[in-house]
Amino acid sequence: MNICVFCSAYSLDDRYTAPAAEFARLLGEGGHTLVWGGSDAGLMGLLADNVKAAGGKLVGVMVEMLRHKAYAGADELVWTADLAERKAELAGRADAIVVLVGGLGTLDEVTEVLELKKHGMFDKPVVVLDTEGFYDGMRTQLERMDAEGFLPKPLAELVTFADTPAEVFEQLKA
């Protein structure tokens, strides 16, 4: 499976990196391919290192302006002109999307994919690994949108949340 991961390019506390490393190990050991932002920085680099060490493949999708941060050990690097093209390429190569902790870029990526799912333009699973309750606020907001009729589909058809890396893979198999 080509698993696209949205996550931070910053170095983070162990409470976030340890679950990400475990997720990456499971991805690699499962024979899957990581499709990600292609960076060697922060959580992105840690993810790639651990997927590769566990035997998985790496497909990085990078914006040309970030060429200096490209992960040297990727099996394939795809270059895009801008962030919009990058998001389209990431989603287009994905059999599933997993969201790890991240900042504004990660939030932008996941909300765009959910908007595409809402309109039937993306039909792959989206699973958020909610490490340390990082996405509790987003989950609460999405649940409110669902309860108050702002979503044309049930929330569970758009996105699911997992508490552990193993649970992410359980949901992807379901």
Rank of each mutant, 00 (worst) to 15 (best):
Y71N: 08
D95I: 03
V59L: 12
K52N: 10
W79T: 15
W79I: 11
E85C: 06
A54I: 14
E112H: 10
Y71I: 12
V78F: 10
K52A: 12
G55W: 09
V61A: 10
D95W: 03
L90W: 02
L116H: 01
E109A: 03
T80I: 13
E112A: 00
D95R: 02
T106C: 01
V128L: 04
G92Y: 01
G73F: 11
D49M: 11
E76T: 13
V99E: 01
L104G: 13
D108N: 08
V61P: 05
L100Q: 04
W79L: 15
A54H: 13
V101R: 01
A96D: 00
E85A: 14
Y71R: 11
G120D: 14
M62Q: 13
L46Q: 07
V99H: 00
L46K: 09
L107H: 03
A96Q: 00
M44R: 02
L43G: 08
V63P: 15
P125W: 07
L83S: 14
H68P: 11
W79G: 11
G102W: 00
G60V: 13
T106Y: 02
V78H: 10
F122R: 00
M121N: 10
V63W: 12
A81E: 14
R67V: 10
H119M: 11
M65T: 15
N50C: 12
L116N: 01
A96E: 00
G56S: 09
A84M: 11
E109T: 04
E112S: 06
I97L: 07
V128I: 15
D82S: 15
G92K: 00
A84I: 12
M44Y: 03
V59H: 14
F122L: 06
D123I: 03
E112P: 05
V98S: 02
W79A: 11
L90K: 06
D95E: 13
V128F: 09
A72E: 15
G60A: 13
E109F: 02
R67S: 15
H119D: 13
V110W: 06
V101P: 11
A84D: 14
E115L: 10
V98G: 07
A94K: 07
L116G: 00
P125L: 06
P125E: 07
E112D: 14
T106K: 02
A91F: 10
K118G: 05
G92H: 02
D49W: 07
Y71A: 12
L107P: 00
R93S: 06
E85F: 02
L43C: 04
K124R: 15
E85S: 13
G102T: 00
K118M: 11
E76I: 05
L114V: 04
D123M: 07
A54M: 10
A54S: 15
L107M: 05
R67W: 05
L114R: 04
I97Q: 02
E76F: 05
R86K: 10
G120Y: 08
L104W: 14
A48W: 12
R67H: 13
R86G: 10
I97S: 00
A88L: 13
A54L: 13
T111D: 05
A88R: 12
H68W: 07
L83M: 15
L104M: 14
D95A: 08
G45D: 13
T111C: 06
A70Y: 05
L90D: 07
G55M: 12
V128C: 05
A53I: 07
L90E: 09
G103K: 01
K117V: 06
